[in-house]
Amino acid sequence: MRRPDWRTVALGAALALGVVAALQPETEAERPTYDVVAFVDITGSMNARDYRDASGRPQSRLEAVKTRLSTAVGRLPCGSKMGLGVFTERRVFLLFEPMDICRNYGAIAGAIAGLDWRMGWEGDSRVASAVFAALDMLAPMNADIVFLTDGQEAPPMRTDMPLEYSGDKDKVKGLLVGVGGTELVPIPKHDDFGRETGFYAMEDVPQASRLGPPPTGAENLPGYNARNAPFGEMPAGEEHLTSVRESYLGDLGRMTGLGYARLDQPDALAQAIAANARPRPVPVAVDLSPLPAAAALLALVALYGVPPLARLGRRRAPTHASRSFN
């Protein structure tokens, strides 16, 4: 028998590769998954509108968190788990424990969409305490933290009392996510029925901490009165305005062994979560069938594509050859 036509060979190869692809060869690989609990700051300052939604309208920080967080967790690899909690005052409140994101995405997205500042049980915003509390809560759960806050302490921290974290820095990993713009913006004010009634003014909020014993040397402060005003009179300040406290959150993160990222597009948030949380490798089967299938396709394309190309080349080359006699 003569040597077979190369096209027969190509067809045979495509057939063999197609069968190999159909048999779905697999290999085992490890995929990192993450187990995180997201805590969302629902204090009043999160109502400040310094984000813009897809159509360019002003969007509150909480709304921005809700849209971006639910998209971002959808980008985490399947097998990852997520829990959700909220934060106001000095504590965190766990809404649900970590659950598989891929299987329960609808429920997770619904729960995130259901977050509301009205869930808040108190107006204070002690970010550092809440972070510590959250870390305490997560340590036995073996989950990592994603803490979304604007970093605004209300009332403000005592500048003369340094913050200290006594817990284990390596027990829980994760990140703090700074929410908000760098420009100072006013915070909307709501009445008892939840209707927006304007913005907080300087006199509405304490501009300096009044917690604990008065600092030494308070006698020299203006307006000092040992009984009625042990801290002196309330200084003027900008605590009624808000912007993301990036340096403060960064310090807090370093203190607790957490990373810091600014809330940006969902992809960046998903990447930040992946970069800061502990990856938990789970074995996954990797389908190798695209390789032989692509090779089969290549063989077929060669089978069908080479002859016309060759004809084209032949037509271009020998214009002189056919008329060589003359």
């Binding site: 829990g83 909220v86 409140f93 809404l95 649900f96 424990e97 970590p98 659950m99 598989d100 299987r103 329960n104 609808g106 429920a107 997770i108 619904g110 729960a111 969409a113 259901g114 977050l115 509301d116 009205r118 869930m119 808040g120 049980w121």
Partner: peptide, 18 residues
């Protein structure tokens, strides 16, 4: 305050987590 934890779902995983 009232808090929505999980919206109506038939994912029993989610209910268990909640």
């Amino acid at each position: 305050a009232p808090m929505l934890v999980i919206p109506m779902t038939d994912k029993h995983d989610a209910v268990r987590a909640a």
